[in-house]
Design a binder for these strands. Sequence first.
DNA 1: TTATTAAATTGCAATATTACAATAAAACAA
DNA 2: TTGTTTTATTGTAATATTGCAATTTAATAA
Lengths: 107, 107
Amino acid sequence: MGASKSESFSTEHNEMASLFKALSHPARIAIVDYLLKVDTCICGDIVNELPLAQPTISQHLKELKNANIIKGTIEGTAICYCINPDTIDKIENHFGVIRHKLKNKCC
Amino acid sequence: MGASKSESFSTEHNEMASLFKALSHPARIAIVDYLLKVDTCICGDIVNELPLAQPTISQHLKELKNANIIKGTIEGTAICYCINPDTIDKIENHFGVIRHKLKNKCC
DNA sequence: TTATTAAATTGCAATATTACAATAAAACAA
DNA sequence: TTGTTTTATTGTAATATTGCAATTTAATAA
């Protein structure tokens, strides 16, 4: 068909897939990387940093926000985006579990 | 347009995005999960485990293989798939770096 | 050789994603 | 109020992904 059969999979599997989908575009990886580089949380200049138009950046930010990977705080006219450490921990932990399960295996 | 402007981003950013894209579908998360559950590396019954047709599973396995998340070994008529620990380490390390960089920040 | 079994490939339809021009909305300044 | 700045939304075109029936390939067995 074309639509992914998400209803056939567990909530857990769908949630992890959604998190990874949010990170599955180089622009969104670059945005996360940029947010880590900038000391102050002042944002909006992400548009100046990346070679994409403002609506495109806005769309990518929305997806990162929906996935809880970043948070946005309104500061006057601007919006201050920053990374949500909880979600980073969640993903890192997922791989920690995988690595742990792998320990008892050969291949 | 529609195509992602991957040439505008660094190799590093594109590589990480590719890894996450490979994990951005619940069926592929479920495959990885299943490979972790099964003691012996005997595979092919992934098709019996998941509610998807054989060609669809084959396609998902191909994507996981291309991303180096799993490896396939030919065993007679069957193919034995298993997880590539190196790639898991690589991804986990990526989040380790992020978490480390986050330590020196507030939000 | 002819089955049989397991997995990959092809072709196609349905749906999703990406990118951006144009526009709108929201907050503030003059 | 009118302007300015910043971000979001809408609409649309190009491209990518998903899923599967039908078929093919590859390895082995009879």
